[in-house]
Design a binder for these strands. Structure first.
Length: 287
DNA sequence: AGGATTTGACCGGC
DNA sequence: GCCGGTCAAATCCT
């Protein structure tokens, strides 16, 4: 019945490596060895990338494969105020919102979601890029409001990138960040933006993305023209994806300390997916 | 003074 | 009518 046994073992092995590397990274940072830590970041990124590919290969990130099963949110946030009804309602609302996003733009939903942990009293989610906050909204069923950011260079350079940041219900130190669109401004050269752009153009959908004549296309066309082909097993050149060198430190530290670092992505799907690791039981996913 | 943030209003989808 | 996403004027900050 378990057609993915091999993949599971490979994934377990890969994630165990990630866990070990995080510990090693923490040690290197304690020893104040930034160069060594950065080198480890590259390995970490590659390992996480492999894990994601393994999971994808097994179809674990497709909606169908998890049909009806609750999201990890429930387990992750047992203390989330509203209980089951609230969670369920929240999910409905999120799906509804995503449907709205797709149709309102007339284009498939191209987005990358990450879940990061923040340390108290530190500015959350410094991803090394400059964003300007343009709105805040109370979200139905959510304990915390959602903040809306767009690229600082939206007007000056026509950059379409936006992101939404929302605290996780159960843990005020966890943030869900959803990125929309790729940077088309000077920041596009920033390693974090570069990785985001790659995530927004996954290999499985690259063709579709180029063939699409969606309204989004004109905004990203020039950008894509300059893209280097991304082979399997992307090499981040020693740079940790999504995170600024400074942001990386606290995110990895705090994520490990908090027992979880989640990175999830989904493309063209009105559905949230998350990969979650847990220090004590990393593999309590629902298959 | 200029840029960033806040916040109420508006818009479109469902 | 409800809701999420965005706009834009007012306000704050440096």
């Amino acid at each position: 019945m378990d057609v993915c046994g091999g993949e599971k073992r490979a994934l377990a092995s890969e994630l165990a490596q990630v866990q070990a590397m995080v510990r090693e990274l923490e040690a290197r940072m304690d020893q104040d060895l930034p160069a060594a830590a950065r080198e480890l970041c590259g390995e970490l990124a590659s390992s996480v990338d492999r894990s994601i590919r393994i999971a994808r290969a097994c179809g674990w990130d497709s909606p169908g494969s998890r049909d009806g099963s609750p999201r990890s949110d429930g387990a992750q946030h047992p203390a989330a105020g509203g209980g089951g009804n609230s969670q369920s309602k929240r999910r409905q609302v999120e799906r509804s919102a995503l449907r709205a996003f797709v149709s309102s733009k007339g284009t498939p939903c191209v987005r990358t979601q990450v879940r990061v942990a923040a340390v108290q009293d530190m500015a959350p989610l410094d991803d090394g890029l400059s964003w300007r906050k343009y709105g805040k909204k109370d979200i139905l069923g959510a304990m915390y409001p959602r903040a809306y950011f767009r690229c600082t260079h939206r007007h000056s350079q026509g950059c379409p990138a936006t992101k939404h940041v929302q605290r996780a219900d159960g843990d005020p130190l966890l943030y869900d960040v959803v990125y929309h669109g790729a940077h088309a401004c000077a920041q596009a050269a920033h390693p974090a933006a570069e990785h985001l752009r790659r995530q927004l153009q996954p290999e499985g959908h690259a063709d579709a993305g180029q063939e699409q004549s969606s309204p989004l296309a004109p905004e990203t066309e020039g950008l894509q023209a300059g893209l280097e082909p991304m082979g399997a097993g992307a090499d981040f050149g020693g740079y940790c994806p999504l995170l600024s060198p400074t942001g990386l430190e606290w995110q990895l530290r705090s994520s490990y300390a908090a027992g979880g670092l989640g990175v999830g992505m989904d493309y063209y799907e009105p559905h949230f997916e998350e990969f979650y690791t847990n220090a004590t039981d990393p593999f309590q996913w629902e298959y």
